[in-house]
Design a protein around this nucleic acid. Structure first.
Lengths: 235, 235
DNA sequence: ACCTGAACACCGTTCAAGT
DNA sequence: ACCTGAACACCGTTCAAGT
C-alpha cells in the first residue's frame, strides 16, 4: 500500500484546443476510458499503468506519451466520472438544490468502484469537478450567503459527501469480507458488542447503531445536520 | 501509488496478556516505535517495511515474525499516535466537551506527519482509538441524545476532524510546493482567479476565500456548523 | 524463538532505439 | 509522431534455511 497521490501539479484542461488537422486525438481519451474500465473492474489498487497498457495492447512505457504521469491519468479519470453528475436546476430553494446536488454526487460516486476514494486521492481541478463546485457555490451566493460562509460551507459539503461514500464503500467491502453470505455485517456488530463493557460501555451498547447498514438514512442524517447548521448563517 | 489498506481484519489488542516469563516482549513495541519514527520523517508513502527493517538493522522478512503484515503495523502505529490524545474531563457541557475533543484530536494529528491520512487509511480498532470514540459517545449519551443520534453524530464528528486535517495537510504541502518561499499559497489563489469567469464565476470570485490559509478558523467554522446542526436533535 | 537469503510477483518511470 | 526493449529503483510477502 502507498499513499494517495494528487499533490503534484495544477494541470490545465484545454485539450479541446488541439493543433487541428490531425485525426488521432482519440488516443488520450482512449487511455482515460480504458483506465476508467480498469478502475471499475479492479478498483483503485488494481488501476496500474501496466494494466491499462495491457488492456490497450501496448507497453506501459507508451502511456507516457499521452499522459505526463499516473497522477495526471487519475485526475482525468476522476473528472471523467464527474462528467456524469447532473447539476440541479435553479428553480428550487437553496436547501433543496444543495440536497439534490449531494444525492446526485453520491449516486455517481457509488456507480463506479472506488470512485469516492479516487476523488479523495486527487485534486478537484478538472472542468467537471469545477462545475460541481461552481454549482454549490452559485447556489449559496444566490441565496445571499456571504462569500466567506459560501466558500467554507461548500468545501465542507463536498468533503462530507466524498468521505461519507469512502467510508460507506469501505464498510460494505469489510462486511462482505466477514459475512460473505449475509450482507448485514453481523460479525462486525458482534465484534463491537464483545468489547469490554467496563472500558467501552457506550461502544458496546451502541454496537447495533454504529454498524447500521442503512447508509441512505445515515447519509440523509449527516446532510440534514450540515444544512441545519448552515441555516444559522443565513442572511 | 496504491490504495489505502485497512480492510483486512479485526484484530484483538490484548497484547498485555502475554505468555509471561519471557523477557523480550519489547520487540513488537520497538517495531511500532520505529515505524512511527519513519512515518514522522518520511510520511506515509515512505513508511515501507523495508525502511522500518533497515532502521532496526534487520532484514524486512524479519518483521513478519512480529507483525502479521503491513496493515497490522499501520493499525498499531495509528493507535500509538492516538495514545497521545487527552480525553476531556466530564465537568463541562456536551458542546464544550465535543469541541475540546475535536481540537485535541486535531492537535495530535497535526503533531505527526501524515497522521490524519493514516487514520483515514486504517480502521479505528485499536484501544486508544476506541477510547476516543467512547469519549464522544459517552458525552452525547450523558447529555440525553438518543442512541441512534449519538452513534451517527459521533461518526460524523470524528470523520470531520480526520478528513479536515487530511485536506489541511494536503493543502499545506501543495502550497509549499508552488510557493517554496512564501507560505501564503498565492499561486493556487491565482490559479482559481484565472479560471474562465463565464464558466466558473463563483469559483473565480471566491478564489481568495477558497484558498484561505487560516485553517484554525476554518476548522472552528465546520465544528460550529456540526454542533449547531446537532442541537436540533437535543432532547 | 528469532533472523537471513533468496526469490516471487509486482510497481512507476526513463530513455535510447526503432518505425 | 508514436511505440518498444530494457532497464532502474523500488514495493509487500513467502519460505526454506540457518542459529
Amino acid at each position: 500500500m502507498d499513499q494517495p497521490p494528487g499533490n503534484s501539479s495544477l494541470p490545465r484542461f484545454d485539450d479541446q484546443s488541439r493543433p487541428e488537422g490531425r485525426r488521432q486525438p482519440l488516443h488520450r481519451a482512449q487511455v482515460v476510458e480504458t483506465a476508467r474500465e480498469v478502475l471499475d473492474e479492479s478498483g483503485l489498487a488494481g488501476l496500474t499503468m501496466r494494466h491499462v497498457a495491457e488492456r490497450l495492447g501496448v507497453k506501459s512505457a507508451s502511456l507516457y506519451w499521452h499522459v505526463r504521469d499516473k497522477d495526471e491519468l487519475l485526475n482525468l479519470v476522476a473528472d471523467a466520472i464527474c462528467a456524469e453528475i447532473r447539476t440541479p436546476s435553479s428553480t428550487s430553494s437553496w436547501r433543496e438544490r444543495l440536497l439534490e446536488l449531494a444525492w446526485e454526487y453520491r449516486r455517481v460516486l457509488l456507480a463506479h468502484r472506488d470512485a469516492a476514494l479516487l476523488m479523495a486521492s486527487t485534486l478537484p481541478v478538472g472542468p467537471h469537478r469545477l462545475r460541481l463546485a461552481e454549482s454549490g457555490l452559485a447556489t449559496m451566493l444566490e441565496a445571499g450567503f456571504s462569500p466567506e460562509i459560501t466558500a467554507r460551507a461548500s468545501l465542507l459539503f463536498t468533503d462530507y459527501v466524498t468521505n461519507f461514500v469512502v467510508e460507506e464503500s469501505r464498510w460494505e467491502a469489510l462486511a462482505t469480507t466477514f459475512d460473505p453470505d449475509s450482507d448485514s455485517g453481523d460479525a462486525i456488530r458482534e465484534w463491537f458488542e464483545a468489547l469490554p463493557a467496563d472500558q467501552y460501555p457506550s461502544l458496546a451498547a451502541l454496537a447495533g447503531h454504529l454498524t447500521d447498514p442503512d447508509s441512505d438514512s445515515r447519509f440523509e442524517f449527516g446532510a440534514a445536520i450540515l444544512l441545519a447548521g448552515l441555516s444559522q448563517h443565513e442572511s
